[in-house]
């Protein structure tokens, strides 16, 4: 990461935050002038200040909505609450605590939502921000069910493939379930793929534990750069080269990396992304091995490359491409 010579972004955000805090409390005319001068000194200052003020507003909004979610109005909390009133100090000190508790209850209410289903269509790759701060990226034709509960976070990988970047929260394990297998993490990044009769896990950051549903002890622990497959009950674990880790994530950029697999398997991969399906005329052609990086949404490009590399012919109709 290149660090720019002058002020670093964090430092600017800190100063902007201080200004936003002060203007929240009300600025004297000379402070106003000083703020204007600071904002004018660098476009990043103006941007960072706008962001800080907006974050302050977001805090009020999130709070107000939360109050609605709790649906248990507390008197004297209306938005237009009178300013000039006298309260005992004890009551006042209690008030913020009550608000914090209400916030906590509000979060609880939120988490009781039923599972949220998220799916992608053919050719779609989708980034999803999960409510706990984690992120998921779904590959083409994939479905997950997300269930956020107070004590745990559960994702069912119904079909396909998804990568997860888990927000750190040791108190709420993050589990991905597929079949009778469970991948458990607290704060880490990993990818889970449904296989024909099993599952594949690739860890890109941190560690995860793999369990069998109902099983007491883990069947494996994986570190960053490791891959585990369970196929027909057989468990295999191995370390990957950094390049292979990259390759297994390339789909997030819309790429497919072919690393010497038979053309038939490669075509099956590409066909998952496109309405136009590639077909291979002979088993002999299907068994030829292919290498290279291809755009998943460009079946014609792949077909042309294969035709050149393997000396095959391409025959194209409206909804399919035949390789022979």
């Amino acid at each position: 990461m290149i660090v720019s010579g002058a002020e670093d972004g964090n430092a600017i955000d800190r100063i902007a935050a201080e200004w936003a805090g002060r203007s929240l409390l009300g600025l004297a005319p000379e402070e106003r002038a000083a703020l204007a001068a600071w904002r004018a000194a660098d476009p990043r200052h103006a941007g960072s200040y706008l962001r800080a003020v907006a974050i302050g507003k977001l805090a009020v909004k999130a709070h107000t909505e939360d109050r609605q979610a709790v649906a248990e109005p507390v008197p004297a909390h209306g938005e237009a609450a009178p300013r000039s009133f006298v309260l005992s100090r004890r009551r006042l000190l209690g008030a913020p605590l009550a608000v914090s508790l209400a916030l906590a209850v509000g979060l609880g209410v939120y988490h009781q939502f039923m599972a949220d289903r998220i799916s992608t269509e053919r050719g779609e790759i989708r980034n999803v921000a999960l409510s706990d701060g984690s992120a998921a990226v779904l590959n083409t034709v994939s479905t997950i069910d997300v269930r956020m509960e107070p004590a745990r976070r559960t994702i069912d990988l119904v079909t396909g493939q998804a990568w997860f970047d888990v927000a750190h929260d040791p108190a709420r394990p993050f589990e991905v379930h597929h079949g009778d297998m469970i991948v458990r993490a607290t704060g880490t990044a990993f990818q889970v793929s449904a296989l024909q009769d099993g599952m594949e896990v690739v860890v890109t950051e941190g560690t995860v534990v793999v369990l069998r549903a109902g099983g007491a002890s883990p069947i494996a622990q994986l570190r960053a750069g490791q891959r585990l497959t369970v196929e027909q009950g057989q468990v295999q674990q191995r370390s990957l080269d950094p390049i292979h880790v990259e390759q297994s994530l390339a789909w997030q950029q819309g790429m497919i990396v072919l690393d010497g697999e038979p053309l038939a398997a490669a075509v099956e991969k590409v066909n998952r992304y496109n309405d136009i399906q590639i077909e291979i005329a002979t088993a002999q052609l299907g068994s030829r091995r292919v290498y290279g990086t291809f755009r998943a949404r460009d079946p014609e490009g792949l077909a042309k490359a294969v035709a050149i590399a393997l000396d095959a012919e391409v025959e194209k109709t409206d909804d399919r491409i035949l390789l022979k």
Binding site: L24, L25, G26, I55, G56, L58, A59, V60, K61, A62, H63, E65, D66, H77, A81, R83, L92, L93, A95, P96, L97, V99, S100, L103, A104, G106, L107, Y110, A129, L130, S131, D132, G133
Partner: peptide, 30 residues
Amino acid sequence: WSRHEIQRLILSLPERCRDIFHLCRIKGYT
């Protein structure tokens, strides 16, 4: 997510800091 994130961050503030923030920002105290 953004609402959730800001709530999470407010809850992460040190207690005294959070209380003062609540009074001034949310309840509108001077």
